[in-house]
Structure formats: structure tokens, C-alpha cells
Design a protein around this nucleic acid. Structure first.
Lengths: 145, 145
DNA sequence: ATATTTGCAAAGCCTTTGCAGGGGA
DNA sequence: TCCCCTGCAAAGGCTTTGCAAATAT
């Protein structure tokens, strides 16, 4: 098993109560919709979009509106529980449960997105003209075998 | 004068006839609208959006439609004369006359975008799991003094 | 009781598309 | 002539917003 897979699986067993605690800590009311969305996003999904979440929710919840999905994801992101990624290959935001500093790899054949750990990409900044870096976003395009 | 400025200024004096030649070489009919858009994009603008181009065109041309602006910019990009950038800080595409391999720097205070030459950022790929890179997109966020 | 959150529909933003008229090759 | 280009308006995809009803503390 690669380190890529390990990183994901560390969150796969969150219980509803743990999600409640997490939401409260983040200052968010643990409503049924939010708990459900978290279960999916943190335990099952891989870089889901709002549409992915909505599709899943329609199967697993009695009712939820698309606006609530957007609001919830955006609230989770604002609370620092998720990263909101706007990548160049797609028009829609994808959410990432990995909030550590990392980069992304897009398999251009399949459209699949992988997290790339800091240790997989060495960066050496030699910026001219007084530019001061604060954060770096990297999308590597290629193929995964 | 920094190298950043030099790179831009090498295109600042294109004459209409030169633009015509460039368009023909690219397989595009040199219509009045296209020539005008090229004058702006190649000689005056700095990472313009379609809206920027439209605004400029409305001041300098008798009439042009937004669709034509989009079509023209997209045709120029398809022809390899421009780069179409979708960056995470903005919902709209920005166009870049610099078609060499390079990266971008966003001044988060001003919103201004700078090109960052390859020599200003060392990259060392150590991808695991059989990922093969083909291209790398980098957006550095920070401040310019 | 009070402040949040939800659902719905409508609107927003950026971009693309369909089609008729116009112009260059 | 024929094909490409233009302009206009409409539609498209994704996301946000306004507001009343429902829910949480």
C-alpha cells in the first residue's frame, strides 16, 4: 500500500458522534445534513465536487437541497476542515480533506486527481523583483500507470 | 529595468501589418476585430481577461460583440499565440502573451499577476506510485514590494 | 425564545452556442 | 461561389442569494 492510500484511510472510520464533536469544535451546528455530508466527504469521497456530494446525499438522505450542500461545504472550508480547490482542468470546485500543505496531480487520461505530498516535489524559489511568496499551488498534469 | 519588464516590451511595437502576417501564419483571417484585439493583447495589455479586452474594444472600435472577443481570444489560444490561464483566485480566464514555459505569481494585495520565469523556480519531482508528469502549473501567492 | 440553518427558486457570473447576415478568398 | 467571421440573443454550467419555514441551543 502506498503512502497515498494510507493518508486517505486514516479518516475512513469516523463515527457520527465524532463528526458531531468535530463540527461543534469548528463552531458549526451539527445538523443531520451536515453530519451526513461529513460522513461522505471525510470517509468515502475522494476529491468530491458539490455535485458528487449532492448525488450521494440524494441516495442517502430523505431530502437535501443543493444550496445546503454548497453552504455546508463552504462552511467546512471556512472552518479549516476542508480545502476548496479550484483547478484549471475543471470549472467546478473540488474539496479536499487533506488540509496539510500538499500539491496535486491530475491524470489526464482518466481525470483522476491525486494528492502529492510535500516530500514528492522539491521547490526552490529564486524570485526576482522583490516578490515574497506566502503559498504555492501546484498542479502536475500527466498520467498514472 | 527587470527582466520581467523586458519580456513584455519585446512585443510592444507590433505594427498592424505585422499582426496581419502573424494571424495569417496562424491560419486566421486578419479581420479588423482580430487585428485590433491583437494590438491590445500583444502590445498594451497585461494578462487581460475577455472583459478587459471588451472594455478596451468598446473604446477603440466602432462595434464589437462580446462573443467575437471570446471567439477571437480562444482562436488565438488554439493557434498557440496566447496562453489561456484559469487561475484559482479568479473565476475568469486570463490570457498570457508569454507562451514560453513559465509560472505565475499573484500579488494578493493588489491582485496583480506576474510571470515567473523558469529560472526563478527550481522544481525537483520525486513522484511516487508511477505518476508521470507532462506539465506543471504553478501559482505562487504572496506580495510584491 | 433566539439565532441558525434549511429548502426553494431566482439571479449571478463567465462562457458557449445557434443562427442569420456580411465579408474575404 | 463558398466558407469563415460577426453580432445578437439565448442558453449553459456552476455557485450564490433572498426569504420564509423549520430546527437547534
Amino acid at each position: 500500500m502506498t503512502s497515498r492510500k494510507k493518508r486517505r484511510s486514516c479518516l475512513q472510520s469516523l463515527k457520527p458522534e465524532e463528526i458531531e464533536v468535530m463540527l461543534r469544535k469548528a463552531g458549526l451546528q451539527p445538523t443531520a445534513q451536515r453530519i451526513a455530508i461529513c460522513r461522505y466527504v471525510f470517509c468515502e469521497a475522494d476529491h468530491p465536487t458539490a455535485e458528487d456530494v449532492k448525488r450521494w446525499a440524494d441516495k442517502h438522505l430523505p431530502k437535501i437541497s443543493l444550496a445546503t450542500v454548497y453552504n455546508t461545504l463552504s462552511a467546512l472550508a471556512k472552518a479549516g476542515l476542508l480545502l476548496e480547490l479550484k483547478l484549471s482542468h475543471s470549472d467546478c470546485v473540488v474539496y479536499d480533506v487533506n488540509t496539510e500543505r500538499h500539491f496535486h496531480f491530475l491524470d489526464e487520461k482518466t481525470g483522476k486527481l491525486f494528492d502529492v505530498g510535500e516530500e514528492e516535489l522539491g521547490l526552490e524559489l529564486k524570485l526576482k523583483g522583490g516578490l515574497k511568496a506566502r503559498a504555492i499551488e501546484v498542479l502536475i498534469r500527466g498520467t498514472s500507470k
